[in-house]
Design a protein around this nucleic acid. Sequence first.
DNA 1: TGCCCGATTAACT
DNA 2: GTTAATCGGGCAA
Length: 195
Amino acid sequence: MPGRPPKRLSRSFFSRSVHEVAPDLIGALLLVGGIGGRLVEVEAYHHTEPAAHSFGGPTERNAVMFGPPGYAYVYRSYGIHWCLNFVCEPAGSASAVLIRAIEPTADLAVMRRRRGVTDTRLLCSGPGRLCEALRITGAHNGLALNEPPFTLYARSGAVEIVTGPRIGITKAAALPWRYGEKGSRFLSKPFTQEA
DNA sequence: TGCCCGATTAACT
DNA sequence: GTTAATCGGGCAA
């Protein structure tokens, strides 16, 4: 029997704890200008913990994190790559979810051209890779997630979720705030507790 | 002002 | 396994 029609994520979806939003994002469909796929890996960043960009207070770079939920926070990583976050929780909480990997579904040919690779598993498996495939740049910083070019649909079926430590950080590295779809072949790195 | 380092990736040995 | 690419934030001087 066919699944129910896709439901758009509302602004209120993001007005919750990053630890509720992050697992609920797994399996959701993210499109930017019609290009994208299913979210399979995200990480939660809370302002009370030193790995968050907002930990030290507002700056020009992290200003969007201190605004209302339901907006994109995009920053430059290592001076080279772009990384996409969804701002969550009540305005001022300065907490967000980092989008780390998607399972590419539309449009594969466009994403291959933008990335310069043919291997589907390398198209969007990593925060910098998916921003290149979806052509997300600093121009998207501060844009609303429920308006063009963004389109977000809630997941339609059940998804098995695994958790683990976040990738590539040194502060608060032990916190298990990475969320992913169990067994997905499109993760940036496997989860150790894969069983 | 200068220095160090980072929510990364690809290309090395 | 290691390292270069590349630049803004944050902090010391």
